[in-house]
Design a protein around this nucleic acid. Structure first.
Lengths: 167, 167
DNA sequence: TGCATAAAGTAAGGAGCCTAACTATAATTT
DNA sequence: AAATTATAGTTAGGCTCCTTACTTTATGCA
């Protein structure tokens, strides 16, 4: 994702208001800062995963599989849960299978389907990354008190619920 | 960007804690929700811009140019402010120039340089999009009071400042 | 049963963004 | 002044993710 390093300062905001008097500076400021901050966070996550030779897409797939009781799911289910298209999921699974972290198993009941299962190597990879992931995220969030975290969480959920207002 | 639609529920978080007792559920929850929400916001912005046949990267370039007093800047400067590489900026400028929204002008003083200037058509495009952009962002943010917006803004800035903790 | 429709997964091609390497010009060193 | 180094911008090629179109298999309806 792309994001402005140079967020609007007061001068450029003044200029904006001059040309568009109805602009809600507050709202725009939160919006842009949110995109900007999460872009940085995403990049930091990329960096963390790269140290373990993984990428975000594949990482989320491993996480989703680990959540399943039998460590197994289907491409379509994984795609829906991950929020990507089935075609994109095919690519993730290809990569993970190539590295031996998951396997494709044919479904006996429906010959169109495959079952994707986390392998032992896949579980090992998760065990290798998760402590690092947890401690880094914790370090990042340590600058916020629990109250502030909760307030942010609530606000994020409200925004997500209101996303339709932008369409 | 990719993001989990299916955020961790209490059951899977319990499973996580079982395997990694040190995990800070709170911190992870905020982190994941932040990535998730802004991914949705970014997609919504893409949608809004698409209606005006623009893309995020090019849009930010137009915005940056409009902030300049003389509506002019250089590729390197734009790349730094937008947070992309110079190579990526070349692509944005190519696109914008093709549509007549900016022009490349040689710099008389330094023949390696080009000056990128917003054209009248570029300004018109901004004038066409900005009211829509402002009203949609305002509608989105209307679910948060000013107090909550400010709290969020502060929290985002603190997180951005603390991003080094993840590296 | 036979035919249309839906669903699972894949393939092909495109756009954005990156890194690395390159060209042309300017600045610095000696 | 000559040679080295740095800077502006571009090109080439890669990766991720998307959309669209396709193949194969299952399901619903007459």
């Amino acid at each position: 994702m792309l994001l402005l390093k140079e967020l609007p300062n007061s001068k450029s905001l003044a200029k904006l208001l001059e040309r568009y008097p109805d602009a809600d500076i507050d709202a725009i400021s939160v919006f842009v800062n949110l995109l900007r901050a999460s872009s940085d966070l995403s990049a930091a996550l990329d960096g963390l995963l790269a140290k373990h030779s993984l990428l975000q897409g594949r990482w989320w797939v491993l996480v989703l599989l680990m959540r399943q009781d039998d460590l197994t799911s289907t491409p379509t289910d994984l795609a829906e849960k991950a929020g990507v298209t089935k075609a994109t999921m095919t690519g993730f699974i290809d990569g993970l299978e190539r590295e031996g972290l998951v396997v494709r198993l044919p479904d006996a009941a429906d010959r169109r389907k495959y079952l994707i299962r986390l392998t032992r190597a896949g579980q090992k990879k998760i065990d290798e990354i998760t402590p690092d992931y947890c401690s880094k995220v914790q370090a990042l969030m340590s600058c916020l008190t629990h109250e502030r975290r909760n307030a942010m969480l609530d606000a994020l959920k409200d925004l997500s619920a209101n996303i339709g207002a932008m369409e």
